Computed example of a mutant assay.
Amino acid sequence: MLRLCSWFVLAMGLTTAVLAAEVSGTLRVIDGDTVDVGGTRIRIFGIDAPERDQPCTTLSGQNWGCGDWVTQQVRDLFEGQAARCTPLDQDRYGRIVASCFVAGEDMGKTLVSVGLAYAYRRYSYDYDLDEKAAFVAARGIHGFALDSPARYRLTRIRGRVASDPDCRIKGNINAAGDRIYHMPGQAFYDRTGIRPEQGERWFCSEAQARASGWRPARR
């Protein structure tokens, strides 16, 4: 029992030390609210951006991959620049949750202000007014119809049924790390589940899947 308690205290001490240390380095964008800074995976505090496979709907009723678009916009703004992040927490995937700054600019505030992310009010109201201003001006994602990222994640938890009937192509990563997409009607389509936490995703078209680096299933 004493050994178990000692291990717990040591683990807590290490976690506290990791969170206390500032993270800095060159920034690489993973998606709209996740980046790598100096080799450390960071979930940006206080914001929630559309998932990479999340679709939006235009006013004319056309679906398109706005999650990919958001990721590219964030890359255009911040990719390759020097970033400084202050850790605040750690999420269930082991990522550091942190406030990040590039050239003194608060990344979270910027992304919400230009309409590339929502204020994540479940955890913080820091960017509440920034989102409201972006909504009134119909900036970025506020010019389209889409579920909140949190709701979208809930609708696809099982991973086998698409939340959007127009985006039913399954982007699977097999044990060898090959990125393969499965079309409805193919042999392994029904049994394939999508695990977003492992990088798998849904696609709205074969062109989108191929452009994102996936190849077609052989059967």
Score class of each variant (00 low, 15 high):
residue 101 F to I: 07
residue 60 S to I: 10
residue 199 G to H: 01
residue 157 I to N: 04
residue 19 L to S: 04
residue 106 D to P: 02
residue 159 G to R: 01
residue 196 P to E: 03
residue 109 K to L: 09
residue 122 R to V: 12
residue 188 F to E: 11
residue 145 A to P: 00
residue 61 G to V: 13
residue 5 C to E: 04
residue 1 M to I: 06
residue 41 R to A: 15
residue 165 P to G: 02
residue 120 Y to P: 01
residue 76 D to R: 13
residue 108 G to H: 03
residue 14 L to D: 04
residue 41 R to M: 15
residue 197 E to W: 11
residue 95 R to W: 10
residue 166 D to S: 07
residue 86 T to K: 09
residue 170 K to D: 01
residue 192 T to F: 01
residue 142 H to R: 00
residue 149 P to V: 02
residue 98 A to Q: 06
residue 39 G to Q: 11
residue 84 R to G: 04
residue 204 C to V: 01
residue 180 I to C: 03
residue 18 V to W: 09
residue 27 L to H: 06
residue 162 A to C: 04
residue 28 R to G: 13
residue 212 S to N: 04
residue 164 D to C: 09
residue 167 C to V: 02
residue 181 Y to H: 06
residue 125 Y to N: 15
residue 98 A to M: 05
residue 24 S to P: 08
residue 116 L to I: 08
residue 213 G to I: 03
residue 151 R to V: 09
residue 192 T to N: 05
residue 197 E to G: 02
residue 67 G to I: 10
residue 67 G to K: 10
residue 199 G to D: 09
residue 72 Q to V: 14
residue 36 D to R: 13
residue 73 Q to H: 12
residue 140 G to I: 00
residue 30 I to R: 13
residue 168 R to S: 07
residue 191 R to E: 07
residue 47 I to R: 01
residue 172 N to A: 09
residue 129 L to V: 14
residue 120 Y to E: 06
residue 59 L to P: 14
residue 160 R to K: 12
residue 28 R to Y: 13
residue 69 W to D: 05
residue 150 A to D: 13
residue 79 E to N: 14
residue 130 D to C: 05
residue 48 D to Y: 15
residue 149 P to L: 00
residue 94 G to K: 13
residue 18 V to F: 10
residue 94 G to F: 06
residue 3 R to A: 02
residue 208 Q to D: 11
residue 167 C to S: 08
residue 161 V to G: 00
residue 15 T to I: 10
residue 63 N to V: 15
residue 192 T to P: 00
residue 64 W to H: 08
residue 208 Q to T: 03
residue 195 R to T: 11
residue 27 L to V: 14
residue 44 I to E: 04
residue 78 F to Y: 14
residue 113 S to G: 10
residue 138 A to S: 09
residue 14 L to C: 12
residue 37 V to H: 12
residue 193 G to N: 08
residue 166 D to M: 06
residue 165 P to E: 03
residue 159 G to A: 02
residue 99 S to H: 08
residue 44 I to C: 08
residue 123 Y to F: 15
residue 57 T to V: 15
residue 11 A to R: 02
residue 94 G to L: 10
residue 92 R to D: 12
residue 155 T to A: 10
residue 142 H to C: 00
residue 176 A to Q: 13
residue 130 D to T: 05
residue 85 C to Y: 04
residue 89 D to E: 10
residue 26 T to I: 10
residue 168 R to G: 07
residue 51 E to C: 09
residue 116 L to W: 06
residue 163 S to D: 12
residue 53 D to E: 12
